[in-house]
């Protein structure tokens, strides 16, 4: 059982949790993820590690309530409550080196996994240009954290309600077109955002790393449900990734596979909302 040490709301349906998992906190690194299961009937949910504190044993996660399980976590799991299962760290850590100048792009919830990578890159001596964006001001979070680890931070919102109006790929394109020497790009967010960013950097031949959030069951290399096409080869996001060369990823396949259970997700959510949302026990 893994205790929730802290919980705070970052935006509408976006919450940050710190969960007590000392073994994970001792060794977890930027780029890796954990799998948690809320209760006996729960599904295994992969979540990227945002921070690990070996002192307190806390692992920080950011969860967007997009489906039944994440919604249930937000509604019913509070500070002091325990999560039944919590396993990690899984996946390969980000390759942190001093590359020179790097651009770290986070879109929507992708800002959460991006932040520890940007921080580690900054600590390794890189000049970090941060670009974060969201649909609107309410959905934007970690601006201060990202500002603290970026030499320059650009903020975009789709509707212009904060920062400047536009997509995160817009300033990426401007920087590359201006002729600045960029040694590496990380782009983490919705599949379509990562696809667009990879397309922007491709003609400039700047290595571009993306972090893929395909559907997983076990998250440990056993089901192959998370397989993605990278350069024509099937790779498992859980054990071969989750980070891959964005120029090699078949994003259309990724998006198609992410949508396979859309109907079931709606069914599960509807059932939860009608049966349980008002506090009835499972």
């Amino acid at each position: 059982m893994y205790k929730i040490l802290k919980k705070q709301t970052l935006g509408p349906s976006i919450r940050e949790y710190i969960v007590e998992a000392p073994e994970v906190a001792r060794v977890g690194k930027a780029g890796q993820f954990i799998v948690l299961r809320l209760h006996e009937r729960g599904e295994r949910i992969p979540l990227t590690i945002v921070a690990c504190d070996p002192e307190t044993g806390g692992v920080t996660l950011v969860v967007q309530e997009v489906g039944k399980s994440t919604r249930e976590m937000g509604d019913r799991f509070h500070v002091g409550d325990t999560i039944l299962d919590f396993a990690g760290p899984l996946g390969e850590a980000t390759e942190i080196e001093n590359y020179g100048t790097v651009i770290c792009i986070g879109g929507g919830l992708g800002i959460a996994p991006l932040y520890p990578i940007a921080r580690a890159l900054k600590n390794a001596g890189n000049e970090v240009i941060g670009i974060i964006g969201a649909r609107n001001k309410e959905l934007l979070f970690y601006e201060d954290q990202m500002a603290a680890v970026s030499d320059k931070l650009i903020v975009k919102t789709d509707d212009g309600s904060y920062g400047s109006q536009g997509f995160v790929s817009d300033p990426l394109k401007e920087i590359l077109e201006s002729g600045s020497k960029i040694d590496r790009v990380w782009a983490i967010g919705p599949a379509i955002m990562m696809k667009v960013c990879a397309n922007v950097t491709r003609p400039f031949e700047v290595p571009t790393i993306v972090s893929l959030n395909s559907i997983m069951i076990d998250g440990t290399g056993m089901c192959g449900g998370c397989r993605v096409d990278v350069g024509g080869v099937a790779k498992f996001a859980c054990v071969d990734g989750p980070e891959f060369d964005g120029h090699q990823v078949d994003f259309d396949l990724l998006m198609s596979r992410q949508g396979y259970y859309a109907e079931e997700e709606v069914c599960s959510m509807d059932r939860y909302m009608t049966k349980y949302a008002e506090g009835a026990e499972q």
Binding site: R41, G42, E43, R44, K68, S69, I217, Y260, Y261, E263, E264, E265, C267, S268, R271
Partner: peptide, 8 residues
Amino acid sequence: PEYDTPIK
């Protein structure tokens, strides 16, 4: 949907 993991 009694258990959260679907199959189709």
